[in-house]
Amino acid sequence: MTELIEDSSFHNEDWYGEELIDRAYTRCSFRDVDLTEAISRGTVFTECTFGNVRLNASRHVDSAFLRCTFTRCNLFEAEFTGCKLTGSTFHECALRPLRVIGGDWSFVALSGADLRGVTVQGVRMREVDLTGANLTEAVVSDVDLSGAQLHSARFTRCDLRGSDLTALDPTTVELTGAVIAAAQAVVIAQALGLEVR
């Protein structure tokens, strides 16, 4: 039975190591809440706001953060496995090292984010906003980046193998040392107007 919590505010609370199992938070506000090493499983946050929330080393499995806003939150060593974050926004958050395996991060706003060294594998990130984001030495493999906003993003020494790069304009991003597969090289060459035979 899912526990429903709506229109509630949580301020200066200590939820260190808390287990959030099968809960549904709607339009709730979390400010200065300590969720370090917390675990969420099957929990859904809809249109919630997180301000100065510590999510260090937290683990999230099959949970959802739908159209949520994260401002100045700390996600150091946080992990998301099979989670849905569609339409969520991150402002001035500490996001590294972050690990995301599977799930749907479409329409997520990560413009200007410092994502150096993060791991993102097998994730759907359609129309994600990575404008100006720094993904130096990150692993972004088997990721659906179709329709993504990638202008001025840095993919220096980033592992992009298996990802959809059809939205990538090689003239507006930094790709030095990035690792791609042969089929992706063809996509990038075509984006440059080259004819591959």
Rank of each mutant, 00 (worst) to 15 (best):
Y16F: 13
G17W: 04
G17M: 05
G17Y: 01
G17I: 05
E18W: 08
E18M: 11
E19W: 15
L20W: 14
I21C: 09
D22S: 15
R23T: 06
A24N: 11
Y25M: 07
T26L: 13
R27C: 11
C28E: 04
F30V: 06
D32S: 14
V33N: 06
V33T: 14
D34W: 01
D34S: 02
D34K: 02
D34R: 06
L35W: 12
T36V: 01
E37A: 09
E37I: 04
A38N: 07
I39S: 13
I39P: 00
S40H: 03
G42Y: 04
G42M: 03
T43S: 14
T43W: 03
V44G: 00
F45V: 02
F45T: 04
F45G: 08
F45W: 15
T46F: 09
E47V: 12
E47P: 01
E47H: 13
C48Q: 08
C48M: 09
C48H: 08
G51A: 13
G51W: 09
V53P: 00
V53Q: 04
R54N: 15
R54P: 00
N56Y: 00
N56T: 11
N56A: 05
N56M: 02
A57L: 10
S58Y: 03
R59P: 02
R59T: 14
R59L: 15
H60D: 07
H60E: 14
V61M: 12
V61Y: 14
V61I: 13
V61H: 13
V61K: 13
D62V: 02
S63N: 04
A64V: 00
A64N: 01
A64P: 01
A64W: 00
A64Y: 01
F65I: 00
F65H: 05
L66K: 11
C68R: 07
C68W: 03
T69N: 11
T69L: 15
T69G: 13
F70K: 03
F70H: 06
T71V: 11
T71Q: 11
C73H: 05
N74P: 00
L75R: 02
F76G: 02
E77F: 08
E77N: 12
F80N: 06
F80H: 06
T81M: 06
G82K: 01
G82L: 03
G82Y: 01
C83L: 00
K84I: 10
K84A: 04
L85Q: 04
G87V: 10
G87L: 12
G87Y: 07
G87T: 05
S88N: 08
